[in-house]
Design a binder for these strands. Sequence first.
DNA 1: TCTGGGGTCCTAGGACCC
DNA 2: TCTGGGGTCCTAGGACCC
Length: 437
Amino acid sequence: MRTSSSVLHLDLDAFFASVEQRDKPSLRGKPVVVGGVGGRGVVATASYEARKYGVRSAMSTREARSRCPHAAFLTGRFHAYREASLAVMTLLRSVSPLVEPLSLDEAFVDLALAELPDLEVETVTAFAEELRQRVREVTGGLTASVGLGTSKFIAKVASDLDKPDGLTVVPPGTEVALLRPMHVTVIPGVGPATSERLRRAGIHTVAELESVSLEELVRLVGNAHGHGLFHLARAEDDRAVVPEREAKSVSVEGTYDTDLSDRRLMEGLLARQAGEVAERLRKHGLSGRTVTIKVRLHDFTTLSRSSTLASPTDSTAVVARLARGLLADLDTSGGVRLLGVGVSGLADWIQEDLFGETADQDDELPEVVDLPSVRRQTWAPGMDVVHTTMGRGWVWGAGRGVVTVRFETAETPAGPVRSYADDDPHLSAWLPPADPE
DNA sequence: TCTGGGGTCCTAGGACCC
DNA sequence: TCTGGGGTCCTAGGACCC
């Protein structure tokens, strides 16, 4: 544990709604609700004026309308939010190299590496006040609430204590006394389900949680969570502020105003989403091996199906084919309210980088396309080989609309691997016999 | 017509390998 | 001819966060 309150948590107040009020003066001082405006939309952010009427994040827009009919209901202008966010994050990074954004409107900053004379409470307090002022300047008037503490957990709790436009510093040594009377839901990771389990065990406050043994907590909420709660209840948190975290998955999903029942339509929508996912993968130089679809049925039961390729892909056709194949396994006869496609198992290299001397090999493995003498044979059960004028390629996997081929060259018995949609024109000659299914 | 979208992390079971 | 564990990968689902 740190001995100084050098972890800072900054949270922009009612962020989306505040940006709207900043950009449209007629909305200032009035209730503003940003979120989905369709029949199944939910509230992303409510201005403080709207919160007075009980409008909250994650509430259905329908309910928000009934609580506050005269509010302005807006869909998001994410470009503007990203821009404001960037201005703030840039400011924070100018102050310390250790900035960890949690979302567009929130970040941790480690002051241990900031240029400060010391980390005394008075020093960091003055610093944070000045930082809040500078946030106002770089954003054209947005306010932020800031918390300072000896850990991420405490800094985050602190930033919540004086909202909006407030600052709270928790002096070293006072953490446990601060937490004890609080409800267990102040602990990150304690949501409705965990809270209810604890409540049934008679645990409501952090003080009560602190009195429970580690074994009992693990029994109640599982291993990882149990250990986490045990320590956080004692304000023990040594998680570092980590500036750049690599993405682990990329996904797109959509909820439709009326339930879908037409499979063709669903396939088309999945294909479009697959294209968006693949485009984002390519934009960030990523590719992934596991494709997952998400399907929410009319009754809100949510299903997922996934399939893992032998090698990473960023191809629209491959993701779309796989997604379609996965949908085929599901019974959607009752109607579908949400469809989604995601790719995980990400690699930040493009797959060719896997192999040494890649450039050369790539040159030697041009388009598989126009190879005249393609044939395919089975060497052993499950081991199919394609012969081409370029050499051999092993069929690693075929099914669900995708075929994966590993090339073999004289220099590299285990050459590059690629996946193709089975109706990719480049691959048509390579298709395995049609699957009976 | 209650219940978004983009993520992360964890768990549990089965397959498979040694 | 009967009974192992451990480790890793994959899949499905769930909780949680903003």
